[in-house]
Design a protein around this nucleic acid. Sequence first.
DNA 1: CTGAAAGCGCTTACAG
DNA 2: CTGAAAGCGCTTACAG
Lengths: 346, 346
Amino acid sequence: MAKRRTVSIRDVARESHASLTTVSLVLNRREGRISEETRNRVIKTADRLGYRPSRLAQGLQSQKSGLLAILVPQIRHAFADVYFGELISAIQETAAGRYQYKVLLEVANQDYIETKQYLELFHRHYIDGLLCLGVTNRDTYLRDFDHGRHPMLVVNNYLEDIKLNNVLCDYQQAGRLAGEHLVDLGHRKIALIYGATEVQTTADLRKGFEAALNRAKIKLPKKHTNDGLYTEEGGAVAAAALMKLDPSITAILAGNDKMAIGAISGLKSLGLRVPDDVSVVGCDDMHQAEFCDPPLTTVHTPLYEVGQRACECLMELINGQRDTLSEVHPVTMTIRKSTAPPKTTG
Amino acid sequence: MAKRRTVSIRDVARESHASLTTVSLVLNRREGRISEETRNRVIKTADRLGYRPSRLAQGLQSQKSGLLAILVPQIRHAFADVYFGELISAIQETAAGRYQYKVLLEVANQDYIETKQYLELFHRHYIDGLLCLGVTNRDTYLRDFDHGRHPMLVVNNYLEDIKLNNVLCDYQQAGRLAGEHLVDLGHRKIALIYGATEVQTTADLRKGFEAALNRAKIKLPKKHTNDGLYTEEGGAVAAAALMKLDPSITAILAGNDKMAIGAISGLKSLGLRVPDDVSVVGCDDMHQAEFCDPPLTTVHTPLYEVGQRACECLMELINGQRDTLSEVHPVTMTIRKSTAPPKTTG
DNA sequence: CTGAAAGCGCTTACAG
DNA sequence: CTGAAAGCGCTTACAG
């Protein structure tokens, strides 16, 4: 582990008989100022010595770290969740591919929030910008960002009371499309399994869904809604409870694919068939949706695209090319095999 | 976006009428040297000004970035994969919780490897240590690390020809346990769906599996093995192909849960029932394994624990408390509903 | 117990 | 076209 001393710009200057200024200028491609001959000499020397500028020193000088952070909530094994995974992939690939930025991973646990680590990230010059995933209306600590001093963006959500930058999918449209799909199939007794109510996009999904039902003179009574906690287990339990409360239900929208898959398993364990007895619609269109049994009809939310745009917009905020922003992306339906007309109408 | 100048240690020194040395000493809790009075004065001033030491400056001084990187292969949306997600969660939580280290996310695409970005990470002082996930025998570029100059660790795999530090599960044991389970149930026509052959742990899984079968005088002929590409699709196609080649097969081990779930769906689409007609065993015991239909019998590999240990060991490498290491973790069987005795014996 | 100075490795006015 | 110097914000011998 004998680490040899790293070669610094000083070494290059000495060996190429040039000044620090000259070396720096050459290596940073400031054109037009340095003679061809000197330039070549410096480059050759730098190559020979294997010189690599230290990001730490460059960062200290430029007051830029070249890093952005992704903040995710503390759910069980957060990164094993495909929803977050999809967004993270999009962000990482965009940051590294287009901007030479690197991506830091942060988890917002209780202590993290209480000690305001998300601000430390900026104050201590760890990062130039922040992307927040999985945000809910409970995350009032985000108010610390509402003066817009630090480049930050809420990804695929927004907050009711706090004005923050965001890029997200149109969940009201998602609810509407799902509702229309079920109504068009002929369903009248339709239920909703939502994720956490404190998530704004969940409220939007419900709003769009209810609007679509109402337009067909269908109500969404309380006994037709249940909390699925965004998990498979929750979806399974919620579906079973709904059917016990009202066995005449013939269709269910779940707020995400995980709950939809859970719901299908919950329905099966009651001896119900999908879609013969009950239709199920998910939301996300994650990769697994194609491989469950039956393949899931679901709302396709362009998560990858949203992650990509979030990253692009954050860079604009960092570079000061932009002040505030809010961007909404349209969604589409992906029809597979988990929905069908109801067996009996009425 | 009017960024006010960040307060530096110099500001604290001035306002608290102390020297830079004193302030630095106090804030870094070097005990015993500074008078109680001065200490309090400095701390109070630092608090009042909201002073936060710059990691960039500290890093430049200490030659430590306080960052480690996780390198994952470029598969489609790598971070949406629960296998990687589980490891990443474990690493992030351990790094942040126990070591105040932050975690960088890197994807090894072709350009990344050709330009040796993984070395740049060290040379440019971006990181103090590296954790490589999803490594295969094709990743010969890792030879760049075999002199052990940079703290790095291969997580949950190892390479045939290159001696590197690693922490991993015992995949030979995994294969053996799965094989014994199926043999004990009475199966004789047993097949294997493996992931990429260039992955060393896949070879180990097969070796252990074959050994268990051989002990019961069962062969694993070529027509009983197939490549499932580590994906659901691959598993589905592989299972269907196996059954067409030899309809007498009554049990299948898949090299990971994704392929197992795919295999189940492939078998179903042939009109075969699991486990009645064919038993299926997975490997990983990922969260979803409990919610597929039928719930998956699978080898439980302690991925979270492996990620945690990998992080701990990397810190020891970084701190020079350790030179080389190789750690193997035992696995266990999780019996659910996708395996049963064969219908007819023989 | 405390401080002046050197140094970590860069970049960038400024002067020539 | 090129270089000496100051400065980014810290830490740590060293001296008193």
